[in-house]
Design a protein around this nucleic acid. Structure first.
Length: 426
RNA sequence: GGAGGCGUCGCCUAGUCGGUCUAUGGCGCCCGCCUGCUAAGCGGGUUGGGGUCUCAAAACCCCUCGCGAGUUCGAAUCUCGCCGCCUCCGCCA
């Protein structure tokens, strides 16, 4: 949710943002009307309530006939107050229902367009020339099966399609990534956190995942709880309803959790292997900072993502996500795509969003500084999503003999091992 | 899962058989006095949040005793539901 005052002070800005998202512009006028109705109701209520309080104090002191007379008046007033209260409740509910259906206000410099408009900011590293190396490119699953790293068949047996089991070298590779990512997070000043993957509706709602993304979220009916699709949810809800001292900002957290996604809209996309799955583990970066620092923090998060991926020897592209393809909570989003040789194209590995005050307002997270209390900004970014990173490593570092060279930075976490060898070679 | 207890202003705490509670006291914090410095002492101030108005300050209004609903003219106080915490039992990694 953006600042409700914006509807009064700068409705055109809201209209422009809605239009660029490809969402309803009429909603702005509905919001303005609902806001006026709400304020009128509050005014009426406050007047009556003040009168009731004054009378109440008189009743407390009065005696006999005087008291009886006052009681008669105050009784009447009581009904009016209740009616006004109901009016306020209704008007507020209507107003906030509209407010919640708005997406965040997009930052002006975000490029226009939709899902298919890719704005590549930069390309780092270069895909290997496999043909020149005399290698017939294999996809990650083929490579992994030869290594004994992934078992899709048994994953499906246990849990169904889009589930996997990481075995032997696959499991070791994930643990190496977990350790390496943690060391980078600490190096960049993040505070490590292990957060719940199962959360209350308020956490899901506050982070904006029950809007357009609701179909992708697992819900546990019996307990009315949700499985998170990212640790972002838990890290954002961590400080909900709190007022943070500005001196303690920015707060940079690195949260690790499993992530669960229904992938409801994904139809037959990426059905092979572990590129798109219902469950994976992830290190997520999360920042609470003053709104004026948000864009600078966003650049830092992007920088850490670039550094992490390139340090694994992955060729990447950095994208400035177009206005029409932003999630409802993001004011700007950068994605890092890594080259996937078997597909001959770059695919999303990490994503970082500047949510400005959107989530903070919904979750009641604020900051206190010399200017008083005000909402702060939240940002999130993938540090390492295990499965996709594994896909990219296996494919980009595959060798003609079926082995995979382990990126140097991961070797310390694999006992110094330099490559994964296919089972048949052992 | 069963039984019991508890949830008040940053922290501790008084109040809890309904009515100036516009919530007590202490700690902490802020201002002033005193003091060679420090410490101590003395006096005063201090719940928080939202809003109206204003250049600003001041002022004013509403909400706030875990959350919500109910009873009542009136709820920190009574009733119900929920949430959280603690203790004991059961179960369990």
């Amino acid at each position: 949710m953006f600042d409700p005052k914006l509807l009064r002070t700068d409705p055109d800005r809201v209209r422009r943002s809605q239009a660029r998202r490809g969402e309803s512009v009429e909603l702005v006028d509905q919001g303005i009307a609902a806001d006026e109705a709400r304020r009128e109701a509050i005014g009426a209520f406050e007047g009556l309530r003040a009168e009731q309080k004054t009378l109440g104090a008189q009743v407390a002191r009065a005696q006999g006939d005087e008291k009886a007379a006052l009681l008669a008046r105050t009784k009447e007033l009581s009904d009016d107050v209740k009616a006004a209260q109901a009016w306020v409740d209704e008007a507020e509910a209507a107003f906030y229902a509209i407010m919640k259906s708005f997406g965040n206000i997009i930052i002006d410099s975000v490029p226009d367009g939709g899902e298919d408009d890719l704005y590549v900011l930069e390309t780092l590293g270069e895909p290997r020339d496999f043909e020149a190396e005399g290698i017939v490119v294999k996809d990650h699953l083929e490579i992994a099966e030869a290594l004994g790293a992934i078992d899709m068949v048994r994953g499906a047996k246990i849990s169904g399609s889009r589930f996997y089991v990481l075995t032997g070298p696959g499991a070791l590779l994930e643990f190496a990534l977990i350790q390496y990512a943690l060391s980078k997070a600490l190096e960049h000043g993040f505070y490590p956190m292990l957060v719940p993957a199962l959360v209350k509706p308020s956490a899901m709602e506050g982070t904006g995942f029950l809007g357009q993304a609701a179909q992708d979220v697992y819900h546990l009916e019996a307990d009315d709880m949700y499985l998170v699709g990212t640790a972002e949810v838990s890290l954002a809800a961590y400080h909900s309803d709190e007022i943070l001292d500005a001196a303690t900002l920015p707060r940079r957290y690195a949260g690790f959790s499993s992530a669960f996604r229904r992938e409801a809209g994904a139809g037959g996309k990426d059905t092979k292997g572990i590129f798109r799955v219902h469950w994976f583990d992830k290190w997520e970066m999360f920042v609470y900072c003053a709104p004026e620092d948000a864009e600078a923090e966003h650049e830092k998060l992007l920088g850490y993502e670039k550094e992490f991926l390139t340090s694994l020897g992955l060729p990447i592209q950095v994208l400035d996500v177009a206005s029409g393809d932003l999630g409802s909570s993001a004011a700007r989003k950068y994605d890092c795509y890594a080259y996937i040789p078997s597909q001959g194209k770059y695919r999303e590995l990490t994503s970082t969003s500047n949510c400005t005050e959107f989530q903070a307002r919904r979750l009641g997270v604020r900051m206190r500084d010399a200017d008083g209390v005000r909402p702060l900004a939240t940002l999130n970014g993938t540090l390492c999503a295990m499965t996709r990173t594994i896909v990219a490593i296996l494919e980009n570092h595959q060798q003609a003999d079926g082995s995979v060279i382990i990126p140097e930075v991961l070797r310390p976490y694999l006992g110094g091992q330099e490559r994964f060898e296919p089972l048949s070679a052992k």
